[in-house]
């Protein structure tokens, strides 16, 4: 227990009157890459929003490095070293590419990532650094969103729907970059619709269904059939 980076205990998340998560339990060890899969409405995004502080919860429901953080605001969570690459990129349209990246470093943590390192990872962004972020293609915007999260030098990065709406060739570029990102001792949780893509980079997987964990295990120890059953909620 004590060496877990993140522990989620009986997490109930609510959007107004709607309950999105029911007593979710989850644990993440340092250096792991966790895939979170599940159908639409299974509760993947509420989970991401809860961990990052965008959805308020009870403090003890989310424990990070032994400290309860469920009640913290998103900016406080960010300072602890948790970064979210949000669904749909969500760049700041009033900011240039470089300004988006620089803002990512606002939390003031030190570590391997810098503007130059991000530009080395995605060279196209160096060329586009002065442009309005909205003038980029979807794939380039995703690169900025990833780079922006890395600029915070986080310990835990949450990727929410990393390949949604992107062309296959772009998805490949981003997934090719992932090992280089998480290789440097980073812990990652990847929410993904494309199950095989997610499993290719993750060491463990959680499958969500209707706000509950329907399956969990090491990616090399569970079968496609088990995943399909957990994903769609039918008996295999």
């Amino acid at each position: 227990m004590s060496d877990e980076l993140l522990s989620i205990r009986e997490l109930d998340a609510h959007y107004g009157d709607f309950q999105a998560l029911y007593g979710l339990d989850m644990s993440v060890n340092p250096g792991e890459v966790i895939a979170i899969i599940g159908a639409n409405g299974a509760g993947k995004s509420p989970l991401m929003r809860s961990i990052s502080g965008l959805l308020a919860n009870r403090a003890e429901q989310i424990v990070y490095r032994g400290a309860p953080i469920g009640g913290l605001r998103a900016d406080q969570v960010a300072h602890l070293g948790i970064a979210l690459v949000p669904e749909g990129r969500q760049l700041f349209p009033s900011l240039t590419v470089e300004e988006n990246l620089v803002l990512g470093a606002k939390v003031g943590r030190t570590g391997p990532w810098s503007l130059d390192k991000v530009y080395d990872l995605f060279p196209i962004l160096r060329e586009r650094r002065g442009q309005a972020s909205t003038s980029l293609s979807g794939g380039q915007q995703q690169m900025v969103a990833i780079g922006r999260a890395l600029m915070a030098n986080p310990e835990l990065v949450l990727f929410d729907e990393i390949s949604l709406g992107l062309a296959p060739v772009v998805i490949k570029t981003i997934y090719d970059a992932l090992p280089g990102i998480v290789g440097a001792g980073l812990t990652a949780m990847i929410v993904e619709q494309d199950i095989s893509k997610a499993l290719s980079v993750a060491s463990r997987v959680y499958c969500l269904q209707e706000g509950r964990v329907s399956l969990q295990g090491r990616t090399d120890a569970i079968t496609r059939e088990e995943i399909t059953a957990a994903y769609f909620g039918v008996d295999a």
Binding site: S52, G53, L54, R73, A74, D75, Q76, A78, H79, A83, L84, P86, Q90, F92, P93, S94, L95, E99, V102, L103, G104, K106, V107, G108, R148, A152
Partner: peptide
């Protein structure tokens, strides 16, 4: 300035600005 960057970011999207560590 960084202050102005914060202003514009919060103006664009309050939630995402919070994720950057800005207390709105």
């Amino acid at each position: 300035t960084g202050l102005g960057r914060g202003f514009r970011a919060v103006s664009d999207n309050q939630d995402i600005a919070q994720l950057m560590g800005l207390n709105k």
